[in-house]
Design a protein around this nucleic acid. Structure first.
Lengths: 342, 342
DNA sequence: TTGTATGCGTTATCAG
DNA sequence: CTGATAACGCATACAA
């Protein structure tokens, strides 16, 4: 008879701890949730028993009665691996502090069943809260569902900021800043690639670009503004069109880094020196921005910090509706420069 | 008195459905889990009641008694956003089929508390299974823990394949194939950048490289083989060292795409034409491989498929220990070419 | 400061 | 084919 009964496959329960330590179940429960009214003596005996029995409270039982699962979810539809990775990392950083887990829930914003899918997520997991990235962060039916079901949620970069807690950067100001940077370099003709129309940030960045030009006394030329969809191919296509113009731009500002990489590729294939013959600017400061050649001048969007703050809004005890703006930063690298030749 | 009592915030329970449909709780439970012995009449009445009451079974109660949570976790430590994104996508694809959720659990393989963290994951979530990516997939203490706790798990690209279910590609053969490709192009001096030493795949790829050279009657030159760590900077550093050699290589094969991107950057900065003066090959076929200039010749590692198969091994009813090899593919793009000048 | 008894919403046993 | 009832493990009124 080698070892005692505790060694069986069955996990110890709170009852076992109670028996082993000689106190009541309620007292065990108190120390488990470190509530106040417990004598030091009782507490230490309970702790000893817990350790001795290797007791771990059952998550299922706890959430059944406590109405909490210590789990939140991230509903995300961004096609950029960088964005998703950074967002998740930030959320994890915050979740770790509270021993909360994160369910990664991708969604397709074009799905006809988006609502059912999110409701199913709520029902089958009992999550304590949800973080919503664009474009679902602007879907009224989704917000309505969450409110109706009483699920706390935080939106990332929504178009308005009043309906819930939210985290965001000032996309308008960021695009404005980048455009001024290009203008200061002496560029007269600046091409712009708009982001995917489903994302509110696309319009903000576009507006910031136009505002900077207008403020500088320029009239935005519609031929220099092309629609993209945040992916590499659309950036490349826009660049082809822009560079085929009779009067091509000397700089191209793409609404994200992946499209900017597409622009760079086209420039290389055409033998255009960057930034000698063409300056290229991105947006986001994905890891990608540093991996391409030349390294991209871009706007640093602190995605990881956005994730951290979003989770904090969900988990902080003072869970009032609040919005937090995170600062962006213009990162000058080697893809932009002055106009060298006409 | 507008609407009935069901409209309260409290969710309907199985008891309500039982009462509403006039059958027993057990029968409701039967249709819920679509078990056999139920009359069509009873079934349809239950279904109607469920719909009418908008009933959803409680996940907490279900897992308390059922010992299943319908959740699995992905414990991942890969620093590449592409890898993580693709892996998660594949897992999701499979999980969706069974309405299972995925908890994304990053870990740090250098952590002194790795074991505690994974045990905590098990205890606080009650996951039904775990997918382990390298290097934890080769940590004996982790495997021992999982076996002791009776948690089903699948390892991704482990060094051995007998201890559990596993999914993998043949890293040795893939590196061998790429090396032959370079050899066939006429390269006499081929540089190689080894991956991070903690990952078993690094050694396999290295061995494959050496094997191909040896088979071709060449003697591997240790000066042409540098240690890297799978990140951009280490690839760049290795390239600097390699290119500074008295007799520099005419081709460099990096053990992953991110390091290959680092090699490309160095080539560009030095004004070396790729592939004119230097051929560059990567490994992985991350999205990155297509975003850099020139697009990388690389080994396509079907990460998404690996994730899908890993999840399938966990969720398939015939959950026997099994290993599945997924085929790789050599993708020829524009970063490799023949030797043009000496 | 501590303990007892009850309930949370399912599933499973076993008799009908 | 169906149903009454006992778990499952924890938290919390309510007492003491």
């Amino acid at each position: 008879m080698p070892i005692a009964a505790e060694d069986t496959r069955l996990r110890a329960t709170i009852k076992d701890v109670s028996r082993e330590s000689g106190v009541s179940i309620k007292t065990v429960s108190r120390v488990l949730n470190n509530q106040p009214r417990v004598s030091d003596d009782a507490r230490s005996r309970v702790l000893a028993a817990i350790k001795q029995l290797n007791f771990r409270p059952s998550a299922a039982a706890r959430s059944l009665v406590g109405h909490r699962t210590f789990q939140i979810a991230l509903a995300c539809d961004n096609p950029s691996p960088f964005y998703v990775y950074e967002m998740q990392s930030g959320i994890h950083d915050r979740c770790r502090q509270d021993s909360v887990r994160m369910i990664a829930q991708p969604y397709d914003h074009r799905s006809a069943h988006l609502i059912e899918e999110i409701e199913s997520l709520i029902d089958t997991t009992g999550i304590d809260g949800l973080i919503l990235t664009p474009p679902a962060s602007d879907r009224h039916d989704v917000l309505e569902l969450l409110e109706r079901r009483g699920v706390p949620f935080v939106r990332v970069t929504p178009s308005d900021v009043v309906r819930s807690s939210a985290v965001f950067i000032d996309n308008h100001a960021a695009a404005d800043a980048m455009t001024r940077h290009l203008l200061a370099l002496g560029h007269e003709r600046i091409g712009f690639v708009i982001g995917h129309p489903s994302y509110a940030a696309s319009a903000s960045r576009h507006a910031g670009f136009v505002a900077a030009l207008t403020d500088a006394g320029r009239t935005p030329d519609p031929r220099l503004i092309r629609q993209g969809s945040y992916d590499f191919a659309s950036g490349a296509a826009a660049a082809e069109a822009l560079l085929a113009l009779a009067e091509p731009p000397t700089a191209i500002f793409a609404s994200n880094d992946e499209m900017a990489a597409g622009v760079l590729s086209v420039a290389h294939r055409r033998g255009l020196a960057v930034p000698g013959a063409l300056s290229v600017a991105g947006f986001g400061d994905d890891a990608l921005a540093s991996f391409v050649w030349p390294p991209l001048t871009t706007i640093r969007q602190p995605t990881r910090e956005l994730g951290f703050q979003a989770a904090d809004l969900l988990l902080a005890p003072s869970a009032e509706k609040a919005s937090r703006e995170v600062p962006f930063e213009l990162i000058r690298r080697e893809s932009t420069g002055g106009v060298l030749r006409r």
